[in-house]
Amino acid sequence: MVTLAPSIPSKRSGDTSSNNILRLGKPFRFVVLILVGAFFIVPIASSAKFSLQGNNGAYTISAYTQLFHTSDFWASLFLSLKVAIGTVFLTLLLLIPTVIWVHVKQPRLKRIFESVSLLPLVIPSVVVTLGVITSFHNLPNIIYGTPVILALEYVVLALPYSYRTFDSAVQSIDIKTLVDAGQSLGAGWIKLLLWALVPNLRAGILGASILTFAFSVGEFAVASLLSFNTFPVFLVLIGRTAASQAVALSLIALVFTWIPLAFVMIAFSGRSTRNRGATLNTAEVDA
């Protein structure tokens, strides 16, 4: 249910910020930003209040504590974490060599590969699930009948976010020079990857991992339709019987996805403005 990759605009320093060329008045800005801000804050504040409300108006944290005693909660959480870690691992395995290869060997294909990575946006995940059932149900049970299929599919479904993030990280370093330098020093591709490229692409790898992880932990459609009891599926089940517990859990889930996502957003919006045409960082190369 995630949307487009976070393309935080690179702000052109100075020109629009200092002088308000569109001449929109202060009251306009104030009213719009307050109203829109309220729309985003009120549900969170309400969730907090709702989850802490007891039956007779008294405040209690029982919604939070009760959850931790149910084994289903832990089981679903661990399943989701396992699937998410598997997805991140597979994504990096697929993404790092591919994106580096495209940039070093076939820069002409950059656009095409980016379009391919956006394909999952064209095919709704419900339809993908349907397709997985119709086309993979004959596969051995090890793949189709276990959560492995979730990880395999999440890699594809999270591509629009992971690919773009990693791609822009590769774009921001002078990868050709790094590769040439490494090769002239006699490093093979494995060494080049481990000692020169990966250290320089840490931020991109971290960003892609966080986005993929957040996507996998929160994904509901595929998991629920293939009947796997992941965390979001468990959350919906709880919601049918105990609203305040579901709200408490949702609040925790939201906060725990927002913190790493905010980290990615801030890290990458800064990157796109500062590191234009970044050059080799010697300290990092021989680290």
Binding site: P43, P232, V247, L249, S250
Partner: peptide
């Protein structure tokens, strides 16, 4: 998006 949003 998804489930947590609905509950909030």
């Amino acid at each position: 998006g998804g489930v947590p949003l609905a509950f909030s």
